[in-house]
Nucleic acid binder design. Structure first.
Lengths: 133, 133
DNA sequence: ATTTATTACGGCCAACGTAACGATC
DNA sequence: GATCGTTACGTTGGCCGTAATAAAT
């Protein structure tokens, strides 16, 4: 049994290999060993029941199934990339704008309760606790 | 240092938690322990730099960032699901239609070479080797 | 008492790096 | 010799389950 589920790293390997036309160059670009790409791709092909690449001594070429897989895989990777940037942007909204002159470690539960109640109603609140400056 | 990259399993946890409104019920639905969901989500939040859920004693609720993340995450999961079914469909095209009266173990290299040349030109060929019947 | 999330501990296995191999150019 | 993919071996780090903790209903 190969790995139990398809993960984004596996998809990255396939996409990189398709872009570079070779497991070797894909591995260099991703900073891993060539054998890692070879094994991940092979296990993925076993799980899918279909070859994704045709191997030759001059590199690798996508099969028809491989092309479809790369199309979908790229979209999935793109969605996650967008998720990261969007979430990071939201995380920065209001960053540093609210400053409360209490150290959280003092832990008067009044403030904690207040914030808790507030955050339950407005689930978008972002809290940043600074210890020093 | 939490895990080094966002993976599809982590996204599944977040989506399930958002659908069930609780880490506990999400864990039951996915067949894992509640602590696994709690840890994965926490590490993901650290990596993203933003809370995805507001925790309470009655369950969890998505933050604004969490909603965005779930939207994108669902699309990514959907793409991978489509990739699987499409690739499986392609893998089955022509299955069993080509039968060659030679056992691959006999290994006359002529046939192997022929198939290799053919598959280099038409990268969509699917090969199935049967030993017996 | 039940339901909720969190966290420390120990173990497992998926994935990796290293290294050796076979094949082609 | 250089480039390409594959495979065996040993290791490690990410993830999990168990179990204990804490807070609220």
């Amino acid at each position: 049994m190969p790995g139990s589920s398809i993960e984004l790293r596996h998809i990255s390997y396939v996409v990189a290999a398709s872009e570079h036309g070779s497991f070797r160059r894909a591995a260099a670009a991703l900073g891993v060993q060539e054998s890692a790409i070879s094994r991940r791709v092979r296990d993925l092909e076993i799980r899918l029941g279909t070859a994704l690449f045709v191997r030759s001594h001059s590199g690798v070429t996508l099969t028809l199934a491989g092309k479809q897989f790369v199309d979908r895989g790229r979209k999935a990777l793109s969605e996650i990339g967008l998720a990261r940037t969007e979430v990071a942007a939201i995380g920065r909204v209001g960053d540093g704008e609210l400053r409360i002159g209490i150290l959280s470690s003092l832990g008067s539960s009044f403030l904690a309760d207040l914030i808790q109640k507030f955050s339950e109603k407005y689930a978008t609140i972002q809290m940043t606790f600074a210890d020093g400056d």
